[in-house]
């Protein structure tokens, strides 16, 4: 596998990382995601890492980079499903990923993206009926 598939769901992009990624694959994902965000004008990115057995400094940095680049492109990123053992290890390693939003699972991650997207609309749209959906 030389690419991780990116799924589009309306305004959001969804990525499920299921393989033990080598570093180049992670960098490819980072490129692909930033390109897709600007292509489709995505408002949010959800990255599901519940199958990942480790997150080391490289993957951690890649996730942080994705989140910052997405922010520059006006999209929110949420990382969901990090396993307890992975989280404990990542903290011990010294990475707390302060700039990254997290959620327990895909549902609550989606909920978060929807809320922030709606909030963004309310501020962004002049007087319209923006609170629907």
């Amino acid at each position: 596998m030389d690419r991780i598939p990116i799924l589009r769901m309306g305004n959001f992009l969804l990525v499920t990382i299921q393989v033990d990624m080598h570093d180049r694959l992670a960098l490819t994902l980072q490129d692909d995601l930033t390109n897709r965000i600007s292509e489709v004008g995505a408002r949010g990115v959800l990255i599901d890492i519940s199958s990942l057995e480790i997150v080391d400094s490289f993957i951690g940095r890649t996730l942080a980079n994705i989140a910052s680049m997405a922010r520059v492109l006006d999209a929110q990123t949420v990382v969901v499903g990090m396993q307890p053992a992975v989280a404990i290890t990542l903290v011990e390693l010294g990475m707390s990923l302060p700039g990254i939003r997290t959620a327990l699972n895909v549902e609550s991650g989606m909920e978060y993206l929807q809320e922030t997207a709606e909030a963004g609309m309310e501020i962004g749209v002049y007087g319209g009926d923006s609170t629907e959906d």
């Binding site: 992975v86 997290t102 327990l104």
Partner: peptide, 12 residues
Amino acid sequence: LKTITAARLMGA
């Protein structure tokens, strides 16, 4: 503190 940080990484 580490527990609290780990929980945050998991989304809690």
